[in-house]
């Protein structure tokens, strides 16, 4: 099975939305999908008091007024319908001083960069 590893680092609406689109469609189309959340993206996945993504540009503002599929729903679909695995960066969790339970239930255990590199080896890697 072809492998796609997706790092989501940005907290921008445009990037997180497209990352969610890519992860969900790839996962339901037979790709082995791993998502790695870190930096400004990780707070968006808090269960409580998650910040809204920021608009990077005019397109983000445009999307805000449209009925876009919510990025959290798309990531959840990637897991539920396509067996994607979504990991939180353990470094970012340490910096935020949060545990796994603070994050959305579809985010699995924390993962370090070394393990992510092993997971990503030999496949495509996309970064948002």
């Amino acid at each position: 099975m072809s492998k796609i590893s997706i790092t989501v680092l940005s907290g921008s609406r445009e990037k997180v939305q497209f990352a969610a689109m890519a992860a969900s469609v790839a996962a339901v189309s037979g790709f082995d999908v791993t998502v790695f959340l870190s930096m400004n993206a990780l707070p968006l996945f808090l269960r409580e008091n998650a910040p809204a993504p920021t608009n990077e540009g005019a397109f983000g503002e445009l999307m805000e007024g449209k009925n876009m599929p919510p990025y959290l729903d798309l990531f959840e679909s990637a897991v539920d319908l396509g067996d994607a695995r979504i990991y939180a960066c353990s470094m970012a969790m340490d910096v935020m001083e949060i545990g796994k339970d603070a994050l959305q239930p579809f985010v699995t255990e924390p993962m370090g960069l070394t393990k992510f590199l092993s997971e990503a080896e030999g496949g495509q890697c996309w970064s948002f």
């Binding site: 689109m21 969900s24 469609v25 339901v28 449209k66 009925n67 876009m68 599929p69 729903d73 798309l74 679909s77 319908l81």
Partner: peptide, 17 residues
């Protein structure tokens, strides 16, 4: 109706399951 890519596809796949 009214949702954007990949909403319709994902709704179809959920129903297909």
């Amino acid at each position: 109706r009214g949702t954007y890519c990949p909403g319709p596809l994902m709704e179809l796949i959920a129903a297909m399951k």
